[in-house]
Every structure is written in C-alpha cells, then in structure tokens.
C-alpha cells in the first residue's frame, strides 16, 4: 500500500471519528462511512490474495505481502473453510492460509473477485466494539503445465470489527474509529 493511500485512509477514518463519538447508535450516514472504510480493507485483502497466489510473484515479495495482509486482521483471526465435497469446517490461521495459498502446486493461478458485495448491519458487542460481516465472492483458477485445471467459486463471509482507537497528531491525542478484519468463513459455491 502506498503512503498516500495510508494517509487517505487515516484521514477518512478521522473524518468519521467525530460523528461516531457523539453517540452509541450508528446513523445511516456513519454506517455508510464505516462501510466504505471496511470495503477499502476488503479490497486490499483481495489484492493481496491475488498477489500471494500469483506464481509470478517472487518468494520474498509474496512474504512481504503476507505481512501487509496480516496487518489488516485482528489478532487470532482464522479462516474456516468448507467445500462442496466436505461439509465440515477446516480451520486455518490467517497466516497459515496465506502461506498455503503461496505454496499451491499450480504453474498458473488466477484469483478474481466478483463485482458483488453484501454488507450486514453493524451490531454492538459487549466490549463496546461494533461487528459486521461483508460477503464477497471469489473465483480461483489453477492450471498446471500438463493441462490440469482446477476452478472454484467461493463465498467469503468476512468479519469486520469497528474499533475506537487513539493517535497523536501534533501533540494532541485524537480518537478515531478503525476497521480490522476478523474470522473469514469460506464456502465453496455451486456457481
């Protein structure tokens, strides 16, 4: 992520901070601002996954991107994966999931995201944070030199935590709300 983008997100997060401070309930305008911030993170995740999965990405670069991707997540976030053939949920830590993606035994991997998203309401947790779920769809295609092809479409239900944080700007402590990604449920679809 470029410095400019980080700055943009920081300013954006700050811009919604004042609105959220005033009261506990999230108004439609505030919800939209939070949704946009959350979608930025989800888009970043999508971009990182595509880079990590791409066979042309050098090993060192893929590892660097994994570290950047991990910064999007709250501590302890897991991926819960099931497929059409296996109903049971298999659990992976976020880093383990990325490392497995990097090590996939295909010569060419293409990961693309459908142009659809669904964002839930935000609900308050007992610790005061808000939680929501963003649903997106991903198409994975792996191809080997011997012509072997694998393709699937997965639904990803991504937890988002909206959390109050503080930062110092020019000696002043300023509160703002940030979004962190949490557990992701990955379900293979029939599409």
């Amino acid at each position: 992520m470029s410095k400019y983008k980080f700055l943009f997100i920081a300013i954006f997060a700050l811009s919604i901070s004042g609105q959220l401070l005033a009261q506990d309930e999230v108004s439609p305008e505030r919800k939209q601002a939070i949704d946009s911030l959350a979608l930025e993170k989800v888009k970043d995740l999508g971009k990182y996954i595509s880079i990590i999965g791409n066979k042309d990405t050098p090993f060192s670069e893929a590892n660097r991107v994994i570290n950047r991707a991990m910064e999007l997540f709250a501590e302890g976030a897991q991926m819960g994966v099931s497929s059409l053939n296996r109903e049971e949920v298999k659990y992976y830590g976020a880093r383990e999931y990325f490392e497995r993606l990097m090590a996939l035994n295909y010569d060419r991997v293409t990961i693309k995201w459908f142009n659809i998203q669904y964002i839930s309401d935000l609900e308050r947790q007992p610790d005061g944070r808000y939680v929501g779920v963003i649903t997106i769809y991903q198409r994975f295609q792996g191809e080997s030199d011997d012509g072997l092809k694998y393709m699937d479409t997965t639904k990803k239900d991504i937890t988002i935590y909206v959390e109050r944080k503080q930062t110092q700007i020019g000696g002043r402590v300023i509160g703002f709300w940030d979004v962190l990604l949490g557990d992701i449920r990955v379900t293979e679809t029939t599409s």
């Binding site: 989800v42 888009k43 998203q117 997106i136």
Partner: peptide
C-alpha cells in the same frame, strides 16, 4: 446494486 469489490466475471 451490492456492487463494489471486484470485476464483472460473467452472470452474477
């Protein structure tokens, strides 16, 4: 509607 994160990949 409900659009945003990716690219159009066929019938959605």
């Amino acid at each position: 509607g409900q659009k945003g994160v990716g690219t159009y990949l066929g019938d959605e």
